[in-house]
């Protein structure tokens, strides 16, 4: 009978309050997301057509399409991933698998990476402009922009990948060692496939940041809105196009929303693709 006394009542009341607060937060976040998505869809969906995806822009983007930006965006992302993925995976492997004997070095590298991950992207833009565009003489180009983005997403990519590798139970490594499997076999057949969820998380976060980036690209890949002829040519990323349309071009808002919708869809598709590829790799090995 003492079970239903006052302390019990206060605890249930607190529980209920906490439950309510959590539900409210979830709803608020969900609503916020839906509102943003709704606004973009409402404004932009009417503008989207096949011609919009396939044509070059005219009248400063108020008319025509976004084809050159799509190409530039994908090229920049391609350069960025081609550099960042192998470097990121390599560094993460080094940190997670091989610094066991040198804890101090590992801690130092990790702390620097966490600091770099928090540096505002405009700083990376200025660095990219000074280093890639000027010192290395790449000028305003897809290559320069992609390399700058690679620097920007690397810390994030390394840390998430490393966490993914660390999440692989040590008993797998032990079992492999006890069977006399070589380090290479252990890594490629057991550790990496088991770390796939972490690798995907890193890839998705990295791609998201790279696709959404404007500040780091303005000074490096430029904002010329025609088709790039090569990686050394300047090209306008979709995110810069959106920024330009909504800030500088009167009457460009609807087109900006449409471009944002395309960008969101692109992000979604790339994420699905990455997930599917990684899953297939994990199953096949």
């Amino acid at each position: 009978m003492s079970i239903s006394q006052r302390p019990g009542l206060t605890v249930t009341a607190l529980d209920r309050l906490l439950g309510f607060a959590m539900a409210a937060t979830v709803i608020a976040v969900g609503l916020g997301f839906c509102w943003i998505l709704g606004a973009i869809v409402a404004q932009g969906l009417g503008q989207i057509s096949l011609a919009f995806l396939l044509a070059e822009p005219s009248n400063a983007g108020r008319e025509g399409g976004i084809a050159p930006m799509l190409v530039s965006t994908l090229l920049i992302l391609g350069v960025c991933l081609a550099i960042a993925l192998p470097l990121g995976l390599g560094t993460a492997l080094l940190l997670a698998e091989f610094t066991i004997t040198d804890q101090r070095l590992g801690r130092l590298v990790r702390r620097s990476l966490d600091f770099l991950a928090g540096v505002p992207s405009i700083v990376f833009g200025l660095f990219g402009n000074a280093f890639f565009s000027q010192v290395l003489g790449l000028g305003f180009s897809i290559l320069s922009g992609g390399l700058t983005l690679a620097c920007m997403v690397l810390p994030l990519l390394i840390r998430t990948t490393e966490e993914g590798l660390r999440a692989v139970p040590p008993s797998y490594r032990q079992g492999a060692a006890a069977l006399g499997l070589s380090q290479t076999t252990t890594l490629f057949k057991i550790i990496l496939p088991a770390a796939v969820p972490g690798l995907i998380a890193g890839l998705v976060l990295g791609m998201g940041r790279a696709l959404a980036e404007t500040a780091a690209l303005i000074f490096t890949s430029g904002y010329v809105d025609r088709f790039p002829r090569s990686l050394m040519d300047s090209g306008r990323a979709l995110s810069i196009h959106i920024f330009d349309l909504s800030m500088n071009i009167p009457g460009g808002d609807a087109r900006a929303a449409a471009s944002a919708l395309v960008l969101l869809t692109l992000l979604l598709l790339l994420n699905l693709l990455a997930g599917a590829l990684a899953q297939r790799w994990a199953n096949s090995s």
Binding site: P169, S171, Y172, Q174, G175, A176, A177, A178, L179, G180, K189, I190, P193, A194
Partner: peptide
């Protein structure tokens, strides 16, 4: 380690 095998306390099959 091929000639001297080892079994652990907690079964540890690979996730394959």
């Amino acid at each position: 380690r091929r000639r001297i095998g080892m079994i652990f306390q907690k079964p540890n099959p690979f996730p394959l």
